[in-house]
Structure formats: C-alpha cells, structure tokens
C-alpha cells in the first residue's frame, strides 16, 4: 500500500462526482462577482467618505469582499469531499481497500486541498484584478506594499477554510450536521462575535476573523489587533490543525460506518 496509489484513487474519486465542479465553480463566481460589485459601489461612495474613512480606505481588501459569501461554497466543497464517504456508505469500501486510516484520510485531504489551493489562488488573483478595475482611480497596484502578500494570502485563506471544513466533517461525518454548524458559524456567528464590543477580543481569534487579516493592506487607525497578517493566518492554521487532529483521532478510533 503506497500513498501514491491512494492519492491516485482519491483523485479519481474527487474528479468523478459533480459536486466538486459545482461547489468550486460557485466559489469562484460568487467571490469574483460580489467582489466586483462591492468594488464598483465603493468607488461611487468614495467622494462622500469622511477624511478618516478615506485614510482607512483599503482597495485591496474591498476587492476581496466577495469571499465572505464565496467561502460558503468552499465550506460545502470541503464538507462534501469527506462526508460523502459516510452518507453514501462508500467509507466501508474505502477503508476495506485502504485499512491504514491515516493514509486514507491524509491522501484524501492532500488531493482536495491541492485542488482547493489552485482554485483559490486563481480566484484570489482574478478577484483582485477585476475588483481594482472596478475601483478606477482609487485602485491599488499589485506592486504596492503588502498587496501581493494580501492576494496570495486570500488564496491561502480560502484553502484553509476548505481544509478546516474537511477536518470538521471528518469529526462529524454527517454532511447536514457539518454544514448546519459551519455555515451559520462563518456567515453569522463569527461576524457577530467579531464586531460586538463585548466579544471582540475573543471573536478576533476565531479562524476566519484571524485569517482574513492577511488580506488587509491598510491598517485602520483605531486597530489594536494583537497579531499581524501572518500571525492571523497562523492562528487560523492552528484551528485547521486542531480540526484535522480531531478528525484523524476519531476516524482511527471509531468503527467505520
């Protein structure tokens, strides 16, 4: 049993189901379209902004606005890649073929993550350039300080969201349960915790709040976040690692069903 064989097998699995194509396409389209729309709106708003708001105006970050919605499709992708095995009963055939459960899980994650990374990077660059085109004279350039880091970081952020979802799905097994927890968490709860004063200090250590710091180029003047862009991504990576360890330990210990 070599990992190469299992990786090849997982690639066949992921490319042979329709959900891979539609979840990833949706992530690309929603992120780019919403990013362009919000960039165009921000350009029109710029003249009515206060001096303080103009100083905090971050054209790079604005072009990534679509990710708040696009990441939900990435979550669906990550959840389905793993939980499909359980909801279809395929897990029994898979683990009978590959009884080394660590090899099975990490080959699956490697294939899905590599695919997510390619799609996320392409999306991040596309949404940046198209967003800047919408911003007109207020646009940032890829050569500006910190912009390339933010664009590459945007791709890494989306990839980590997918990987985190895979870890959670490996723990919970059920697609409905996984989506029912992850979608509202990332779309609502995390945002609320991160924006309400009472919970802000805790909220900004949540995976998406910390991770999205990497896409910020202009620091808001009143920003007191205790970590930088890479520090934020590091915090997100720790969350991802925890989810993956949890998923691995449970897969290893549980009966396959």
């Amino acid at each position: 049993m070599t990992a190469t064989q299992v990786v090849r097998s997982e690639w066949t699995k992921i490319r042979s189901v329709a959900s891979t194509v539609w979840t990833l396409s949706l992530a690309v389209v929603v992120t780019i379209a919403l990013g362009m729309l919000i960039s165009a709106l921000s350009r029109n708003e710029f003249d009515s902004l206060s001096a303080q708001d103009r100083a905090a105006f971050d054209p790079t970050f604005i072009s990534f606005a679509g990710m708040s919605l696009g990441q939900l499709a990435m979550i669906v992708f990550g959840v389905l890649v793993v939980s499909n095995e359980y909801s279809t009963g395929m897990i029994r055939a898979s683990l009978a073929a590959v009884p080394q459960r660590g090899t099975f899980l990490f080959s699956k994650l490697a294939v899905a993550t590599a695919l997510a990374l390619v799609v996320s990077m392409a999306t991040s660059f596309a949404t940046f350039f198209l967003g800047q085109a919408m911003l007109g004279e207020h646009k940032a350039s890829i050569g500006d300080d910190g912009v390339l880091r933010a664009v590459i970081g945007g791709g890494l952020y989306m990839t980590l969201i997918a990987l985190f979802s895979m870890g959670v799905a490996a723990m919970l097994r059920s697609p409905m349960l996984s989506l029912g927890i992850l979608m509202p968490f990332f779309f609502l709860i995390s945002n609320i915790l991160g924006n309400v004063d009472a919970t802000k200090k805790v909220g900004r250590f949540l995976p998406d709040q910390a991770g999205s710091k990497i896409m910020q180029v202009v620091q808001p003047p009143d920003d007191d976040t205790p970590y930088g862009p890479w520090g934020g991504l590091g915090i997100m990576a720790l969350w991802v690692a925890a989810a993956l360890v949890g998923g691995y330990v449970l897969l290893k210990r549980r009966d396959a069903q």
């Binding site: 699995k13 042979s16 189901v17 329709a18 499909n84 279809t88 009963g89 395929m90 897990i91 029994r92």
Partner: peptide, 9 residues
C-alpha cells in the same frame, strides 16, 4: 449496504 456514491459511474 450498497455503499456506492450515487453520482459516480
């Protein structure tokens, strides 16, 4: 159990 992904050939 059948154990096949319904969307896979």
């Amino acid at each position: 159990a059948k154990g096949v992904h319904p969307g896979r050939s």
